[in-house]
Amino acid sequence: MTSTPASNSTLRPRRSVLYMPGANARAMDKARGLDADAVIFDLEDAVAPDMKAAAREQVIATLKQGGYGNRELIVRINSLQTPWGKDDLLALLQAGVAFDGVCLPKVETAEQVLAVAELIAQQGNQALALWPMIETPLGVANAQAIAAAHPNLTAIVMGTSDLSKEMRIPHTPDRIGFIGALSQCVLAARCHHVDIIDGVYLDIKDSDGFARICQQGRDLGFDGKSLIHPAQLVDANRVFGPSAADVDKSRRILQVWQEALAEGKGVAVLDGKLVENLHVDEAERTLAIAEAIANR
């Protein structure tokens, strides 16, 4: 079994995370040429019950073909609480295909993450990343425990469509009803040094509204956006990625910091503003993300 090792310390761009329906071979083939940082091949919500087995085989065949470059490849299996989840996971693990991780839908407890991790370990794989989805009130309430559940957990994905239904919160332009839940999950991700991906935006024709929601998500602390249509890629990549101005400022911060250190100083000044260790750390991260995007 080949796969990319999971590591919380591995910095990967996750500005755009595009769902691709596992039953749609044409869509999955098209994803090879799309500017997405990550692709989630979906065996859950996007697949009807009588198509689950066929979609599973289609995803495996697609992964065998490869051709996705450096895009992060994730498969959203069905929950282990369904008739299909365990079969999804075992079929993927036993097929000998290369992919990066497994997305776990409707996770509400750390134990659900551990159950998937145990099945993966039983098949002799210690490397697959785990991406739990938080889509219910109980999942939000247990976000800290979920984020800390396993060393291979590298990202949390918000499922705001299901969360809206479960919490009886409407989708409004400002998402005011979601702010508390979203912030609680972002906090959990930051406490445990994992990425967190914002939920989908359902109106694919409303590009202005989508751009505003992306900006709000970035302001809330999200690392990227999950997407349902390729038309959303440009705005997600722009908003969640470092701009040319961000990169230039980061380079200037590192330059004045190195000059200050050479002079035996513990602080520096750039454009009249104090530069300290925390600004240097953020500048280094910005440049590392920009480099990872360029290399992708």
Rank of each mutant, 00 (worst) to 15 (best):
D246T: 00
P105Q: 02
N8D: 12
S9M: 08
M133E: 05
R32A: 07
L287G: 07
P151E: 04
L233I: 04
K265S: 10
G159I: 01
I77V: 14
V75S: 09
R14K: 12
I40V: 10
D271H: 08
D87M: 07
A181D: 08
A262S: 11
C185I: 12
E284N: 13
T154R: 06
V116Q: 09
S207L: 15
Q122I: 07
P105Y: 00
Q255C: 12
G209P: 10
A155D: 07
E108Y: 03
F99D: 08
D219T: 12
P242R: 07
R238A: 09
L128C: 12
L11F: 05
S164Q: 02
D271F: 06
L63K: 05
R32S: 06
M20A: 15
P21S: 12
P173A: 08
L119T: 11
Q65D: 14
G33H: 13
A91N: 05
T62L: 04
K225W: 02
A294L: 06
E291R: 10
Q184A: 15
V116I: 14
R212L: 12
L220C: 03
M28L: 11
Q216D: 09
D271G: 04
E259C: 02
A53G: 11
S164P: 00
N78R: 09
A188I: 06
I134F: 04
G22R: 14
M158P: 00
W84V: 02
P151G: 04
C214Q: 09
N125Y: 10
S79F: 08
D195A: 10
A260F: 01
G139F: 00
A292W: 04
K165I: 12
H229E: 01
D235Q: 06
N142E: 00
R251N: 13
T10Y: 09
Q112W: 01
G199W: 01
A268Y: 08
A143G: 01
C214D: 09
H193E: 08
V194P: 02
V234L: 11
A292D: 06
I253F: 00
T286F: 01
D246W: 00
H279N: 09
S161L: 10
T109L: 14
A23D: 15
N70T: 11
G272K: 09
E111F: 13
P230T: 08
V17K: 02
C185G: 06
A262C: 05
A23M: 11
I134N: 02
A91M: 04
G266Q: 08
C191K: 15
N8S: 15
Q255P: 08
C185P: 06
N295I: 03
D271Q: 09
K265D: 12
T4K: 15
L202D: 11
V140S: 05
L128G: 09
D45R: 02
L92F: 11
I289R: 05
I146N: 04
A25C: 09
R285G: 00
